[in-house]
Amino acid sequence: MRQMRKNQSGTISAVTAGGKLGRRIRDMGLIPGARILIRGRAPLKDPLAVRVTTFTLMLRNNEADFIDVEVD
């Protein structure tokens, strides 16, 4: 997900984080099959804002690393 650019969309293919971070990512609705759209990045390029169907999340680049996305 880190490599994606603003306004790119895609479908999450895998979440490779385990433990606390993995659980948190899943609890927030970032699961395989979810449609996402990169809404943009903070002024300092990190974190990034992601639209997941009906809501928007922000996550740090090093957290986005654990999320694989099939880009449209």
Partner: peptide
């Protein structure tokens, strides 16, 4: 640090 992932509420 705690996972940062959080909602950007409307």
């Amino acid at each position: 640090s705690e996972p940062f992932v959080m909602e950007l509420p409307p």
